[in-house]
């Protein structure tokens, strides 16, 4: 059984308002009910740009510019990261 990712380039992600975030000695830590996880550098970059306005594609373009990678790859990476965050319950699309 395959499950299609709920996240596409056109999705507009937003952070769930009851999610708590802390920057601990330079690393972003996101706490969802019953667990907390650290965000790797690129995930943190994506996380910081989730504003309920930008599309996933738009965030991917910013990621491409920041890290000097092609847009298509960056958008794919962004979709992958956001799908995981949606699964954790930290982000809604």
């Amino acid at each position: 059984m395959s499950t299609a990712s709920p996240v596409t380039a056109e999705s507009i992600p937003s952070v769930r308002p009851d999610i708590r975030v802390r920057k601990i000695r330079g690393t972003l830590v996101v706490a969802v009910p019953e667990q907390a996880f650290e965000l790797a550098e690129t995930t943190a970059f994506i996380w910081k740009r989730i504003d309920g306005v930008l599309t996933v594609g738009g965030i991917g373009e910013l990621l491409a510019r920041e890290y000097g990678i092609d847009v298509e790859t960056a958008v794919e990476d962004t979709i992958e990261v956001l799908a995981e965050l949606v699964q954790y319950g930290a982000v809604r699309v």
Binding site: P17, V21, R22, K23, I24, R25, L28, K48, D51, G52
Partner: peptide
Amino acid sequence: INEVLSVCRGITMEVDI
């Protein structure tokens, strides 16, 4: 309200503890 909450969220991510 949404603007303020968005600003709060942005600041929280920069408060290094």
